[in-house]
Design a protein around this nucleic acid. Structure first.
Lengths: 201, 201
DNA sequence: CTTGATTTGTTTACATCGTAAATATACAGT
DNA sequence: ACTGTATATTTACGATGTAAACAAATCAAG
């Protein structure tokens, strides 16, 4: 038992705990995952996590924050990758959004679950959430400024976001007919929205 | 203590319990509502509900089923009310959808929460869910058959549904900027989708 | 090196949860 | 009046989150 933990060791433990907790939180729900089972998976006593997090909700908030940061990073990378072509950048961000949701449904569920914690209580979570949001809207606003789309950029951004979010949520909730359906509906949705957005207000 | 309960008395108790449980389930989450506090609210002992439901999850399923049935009834009424004009009927169903979500957000949350129970386990819940779904798509298919919209009716239905669902979910999760924003984004979303759907495939 | 303070981790303890089992209560049929 | 049965309550148990007490290991100061 060393006298004091380095910042790195602390971060290590927190990361390990979050990794173990994420899948359980997203699939079983907050209360189905117990501190005792997390401790088992980590090979420590049930009270040890309390040295690194105030309580269970703070663990959940940390898992959410990590998910938002990965999400934001994915979007930012997609935007940066096609920096030259505005149209390509917009598409890339949209694709990155959907890919993230499909590749890491647990993270997506946690990020946009209806039961949102008080943002005042977890400022880091709010920061990560805002970071992701900014990248999303930036891509769309660029398309409007470039004259590809017409209308209020923020409004268009919210409309596109709503549509994609709804599609992903229905998919994750198992409300879409078959597995192939997702890509089909996505393409149709984009066709409708892009057609509408190209036309003048 | 009467010897035996009439079917009506049984249904009364179940309905009273569901009414008390709905708001708590949707706002606090399944595990934040306890059998003991439900019993307090009903003025009975904590074990009495177990005469009417197998367990807590069956109560939650019943609450969900009731929500779906009210939702379906609202949509059906809107559709029936404007039976003559297909375009008006389509709009009425869309409006009823949104109105229900805003008037009874608890019910909406419960219906479309990501943590969906096994549909095999609660057949009544599946039936109610299908009933609501059918009314939604019927309105849109009518618009396509009437030549107002063009494309695969089922596909268009899923696209419209995704968009509205996403909008409502973002709103309920508090992700939309202001309160006035909802109606503005809804109108914009409809403008985009309708413009797209009017154009040929 | 010794000692005491401090930091880390575990053990114990407790209120609360869902609900099974045992128990009480009051009616219906004889 | 008596008994069986449907209804409701009381009691009891294992599991949960976590506060409090405790143990152990290190570093600072002498």
């Amino acid at each position: 038992m060393p006298r004091s933990l380095s910042a790195e060791q602390v971060e290590d433990f927190r990361a390990r705990l979050c990794e173990v907790a994420q899948h359980r939180f997203a699939t079983q729900g907050r209360d189905a995952v117990t501190m005792r089972q997390l401790a088992d998976a980590l090979g420590c006593s049930p009270m040890t996590p309390y040295r690194y997090f105030r309580n269970k909700d703070e663990i959940l908030a940390a898992v959410r924050t990590a998910a938002f940061d990965r999400f934001a990073a994915a979007l930012e990378e997609a935007a940066a990758h096609a920096r030259g072509d505005l149209r390509a950048a917009g598409q890339a961000v949209g694709q990155a959004y959907v890919r993230f949701a499909l590749d890491d449904p647990d993270a997506y569920r946690l990020m946009f679950d209806v039961a949102q914690p008080d943002p005042e209580r977890y400022p880091e979570l709010g920061r990560a959430s805002t970071r992701a949001r900014r990248t999303m809207s930036a891509a769309l606003e660029a398309l409007v400024r470039a004259g590809v789309f017409h209308g209020d950029p923020e409004l268009l951004g919210l409309a596109f976001w709503s549509a994609m979010h709804g599609l992903v949520m229905l998919h994750l909730a198992g409300k879409l007919p078959a597995d192939r359906a997702f890509e089909t509906v996505r393409a149709e949705l984009m066709r409708l929205l892009v057609t509408g957005a190209r036309s003048a207000v």
